[in-house]
């Protein structure tokens, strides 16, 4: 079988399984899976920046929150309906990533991590400061008229799963097309050897900026859908933890593998779900997984598989 055929078969199979899952799984797990798919889209965006382009950002919560607040505030303040509100969320995520990128990409490595962290922190504090428009600490509920595209209320189980699945399918297809495209190869070249790529005539700043904007678009889309599907917008989604989560998912599943974020998000979600049943200190599980991954499996699960034979994994 050709490489292309294997890739189509694997990713088509994953989508088919996810589609079937809504009829096979009990409602509780189907709802979990809807949330996992939205978080996986967020992590996929993170993977585009971190896994493929080598940009380790600690500020993606800003882009996620921009998507969430962009969509939520469009409904709350100016009473837009769901579809334009979601479009607003996507645009907000991408624009925020572009603006942060223009400044932050002047730095690299550890400085880039700290600059993105600080911008995201400033964004979180701004949400608290302008509580009149953002709902501050408490956040706000996305009202029913704002989450009914085509007359389907997205917080109900069936439409919620369908919407999460559609988002995930489009994001997966886009991610595959991106990393197999010419531009995707240039992104990899930036990660592997920036100096040599520059010598070959590529502009590192432009390539990284575009990768970051695409990454922000994914994060914004995930944030906007999260607001619609779960009906709530809150400042906690802009906190540092939400920048760490996609990093964690990507590291666990495999950085630089398209399916890595989905696998990482799913495993981590259920790990935390089980741990929080046992102890209130479930963040300790997150911490332990981070340390163990960095120590023993820096390539993640699928990354290790790719090294042991499945060389064609995109």
């Amino acid at each position: 079988m050709t490489e292309r055929g294997k890739i189509l078969l694997l990713h088509g199979g994953v989508l088919l399984a996810l589609f079937a899952a809504q009829y096979l799984l009990p409602a509780y797990h189907a709802n979990n899976l809807a949330r996992i798919m939205v978080l996986a889209v967020y992590a996929m965006g993170y993977n585009i920046a971190f896994g493929y382009t080598g940009l380790l950002s600690l500020g993606h919560a800003l882009f996620f929150a921009m998507g969430m607040y962009g969509a939520g505030m469009a409904v709350w303040l100016v009473e837009w309906t769901a579809l334009p509100a979601i479009a607003m969320g996507l645009a907000a995520g991408a624009v925020a990533a572009g603006a942060v990128g223009l400044l932050a990409l002047r730095t690299a490595g550890v400085s880039f991590m700290i600059v993105t962290l600080m911008f995201a922190q400033a964004g979180y504090l701004l949400i608290l400061y302008f509580a009149r428009y953002t709902g501050g600490d408490e956040g706000f509920v996305v009202e029913a008229f704002g989450r009914r595209p085509f007359g389907l209320d997205l917080v109900q189980d069936g439409p919620r799963y369908a919407a999460a699945f559609c988002l995930f399918a489009v994001a997966l297809a886009g991610n595959l097309a991106l990393v197999r495209s010419r531009f995707g190869r240039v992104m990899l070249a930036m990660r592997e050897n920036e100096a040599r790529s520059r010598m070959l005539g590529y502009n590192p700043f432009r390539v990284k900026l575009l990768a970051l904007v695409i990454s922000g678009l994914y994060a914004g889309a995930a944030g906007a859908f999260y607001a619609m599907l779960f009906g709530y917008v809150g400042a906690s989604f802009a906190m540092v933890q939400y920048s760490i989560l996609p990093l964690l998912y990507t590291l666990l599943g495999g950085a630089g593998v398209v399916l890595g974020p989905l696998l990482g998000a799913g495993l981590m979600f259920y790990l935390i779900d089980i741990a929080s049943g046992l102890t209130s200190a479930y963040l300790m599980v997150v911490g332990a997984v981070l340390v163990v991954l960095v120590l023993f499996a820096p390539k993640g699960l699928l990354g290790a598989l790719r090294e042991r034979g499945l060389k064609w994994l995109p």
């Binding site: 760490i244 990093l247 911490g287 997984v289 981070l290 340390v291 960095v294």
Partner: peptide, 8 residues
């Protein structure tokens, strides 16, 4: 990444 883990 590791010290974020230690922090938690």
């Amino acid at each position: 990444v590791a010290t974020i883990g230690l922090l938690y």
